[in-house]
Structure formats: C-alpha cells, structure tokens
Amino acid sequence: MLPPHFQPNSPRPFLKWAGGKKQLIAQYFPYFPQKFETYYEPFLGGGAVFFYLFRSRSIFQAVLTDINSELINTYCCIRDNVEQLILLLKEHQARHNKDYYYEVRSWNEGTPLQKAARLIYLNKTCFNGLYRENSQGKFNVPVGKYKNPQICHPDLLHSVSAALQLARIEVKPFDAVLDYAKSPQDFVYFDPPYYPLSSTSNFTAYSRYSFNEADQIRLRDIFAKLAERGVRVMLSNSDCPFIRALYSEFKIHEILATRAINSDANKRGKISELLVTSY
C-alpha cells in the first residue's frame, strides 16, 4: 500500500540509486514527524524521502546535501536549468548504443549541464542502475542490457525541478548538519551507506569516499548530539548487532526491505532493515 497523497505524476526520484527508499515509504511514513519547519537530508542519493515529504506536507524549507559532487551538480541543474538539460538528454536518447555508452562514460570534462546529462544518461543505461566510482572518482559500471531505456522523462524532470525550487542544495559531508540543525523545528533524515552484514556485502563505496565502521560511530555521535538539541532525527541502516548496539538508547523499528542488488539471484529478496528515531 502506498502512503497517502501519492499521485503518479508527482515529483519522485529521477535516478535509479542503490539503497533508494522509494519502495519503503509506505513503511516509513508512520514515523515521520507530523510538523517541522526545515528538513535536512545529508545523504541525498535518490531523494525519495524528500520527494515524499514535498508531496504530502505543507511548504517547508529543505537543505539537501551529499558528498558526491556529480550528484549534487545534477540536482542543481534540474532545479536551475531543466529545459537545457532535457535537450541534452534527448540527444543522448537519440544516439544511445553500447559503443556510445562507453564513449560517454570515458568523458572527463564538460559544462555542469553536460555533466548532469551524462550522469542521468549513464544511470538510465548502466548495469542495474548502480552508481559506483573507482578510487580516482571515475564512474566504472558496465553498460546494461536494456532494449529501450527511457533516458529522458520531461514530465518527471519538470516536476522534480518545481519541487527543488525552495531547496538549498550543496556538496557537504554529513557532519556539516551540526552547523544548521539546532531546534525542535528541524527534522534530519540520515540514509548512510549501510553497515555490511557480511564480508561479501561490503558495498559502501558509491563514490571514491568509503564509509567504514569509524564513520558509523561518528554518525551515531552526531545523531545523539542532534537529539540532545531537540532536533527530530531519523536514520536507516542494516539490521545487525553492531547497529542495534550503537543506537540502543533510541527507538528502533524493523522495516522489511527488498534486496535488489546482489550478484547471486538467490540472495535477492526480503530482508530486515532498521529505522531509528530520536522521538
């Protein structure tokens, strides 16, 4: 069951993103605060929670940040220059094939708009919609096997652009939220790279910046500092003893998610995840 206020043409994630929360909103929405003035999302990714809140709540301020500069550039281009971006995506759509994919993947330079169009094009045509960078910060996912991928979706991009008009969008590390969120009128949602459940599931490097156990502990400390200020804080992560112990002083809720990315098809399916709230 979808949460209330959902309509097919409403703004929603425009990127396929590993760990995206689009399919979990129906389980999340009972835990969202009823009222808040400013929303902060320090691990923006696909932005599913922001888009849901935009659809379902009265006007609020939003500060959307991520350490991935290519991702943040794309959001800014959609907000500020969506028409030109659509034209570039239509060019990619017309020229798409396997050879063209690898040609575009090899590009290193370009204007902000060209880089945004490149990211969306690669995201829509790469294997499994998986964003991954190597240690040099270069996108390195192979082409996917799609017969007719929808690279340009003008109606969706227009609705996303409208939703982002009031948002502050910046490249920032997650700890920068401490400089902004300071009152009970603030709501912070953390969606970090999940703590690995096993040595073979250690998929934390969506970008060149890894996210290790020390980062998980630092994130918990920031969660606690925000909670002490009265900020309403929510966090998603894997269901494992390490995360349960880290957040044992807060409210922990179990969420049933579908694991979509796994090289072994037999290991894809339902899995328990955690949603932690300070309220």
Rank of each mutant, 00 (worst) to 15 (best):
S161R: 00
L178P: 04
A181C: 04
V143G: 10
G137Y: 05
V171N: 08
Y146C: 10
K182G: 15
H153E: 15
Q165S: 03
Y121K: 03
Y121V: 11
G144L: 09
Q185G: 00
K145N: 14
L130G: 01
N148F: 05
K182I: 06
L164H: 06
Q150M: 12
I169C: 14
P142C: 04
C152N: 03
S161D: 02
D155N: 09
L157M: 08
K147Q: 15
Y146R: 09
P173K: 08
F174N: 00
N123G: 14
D175I: 08
Q150E: 15
N123L: 06
K124L: 14
I169G: 12
K115N: 04
F174W: 08
S135A: 15
F174C: 08
L130H: 08
N128Q: 13
N140K: 09
K115W: 02
G129M: 04
N140F: 15
P142V: 13
N123E: 12
E133G: 03
V177D: 07
D179I: 05
L156R: 10
S161C: 02
A163C: 06
D186S: 15
P142E: 10
L164W: 03
R118Q: 07
N128V: 05
Y146G: 09
K138G: 04
A176K: 06
Q165N: 01
G129S: 06
Y180L: 15
S161H: 04
F139L: 13
I169K: 11
L157C: 03
F187A: 12
K147N: 14
V141C: 15
R132D: 12
I120M: 12
N123D: 11
P142S: 06
F187I: 12
N134F: 11
L178D: 04
A176V: 00
Q150L: 15
Y121C: 03
Q185V: 00
S159I: 01
D175A: 13
R118M: 04
A163P: 00
Q165F: 00
A117N: 01
Q185Y: 11
A117K: 03
L166I: 00
P173V: 10
A117H: 01
C126P: 04
N128L: 01
D175W: 11
A167C: 15
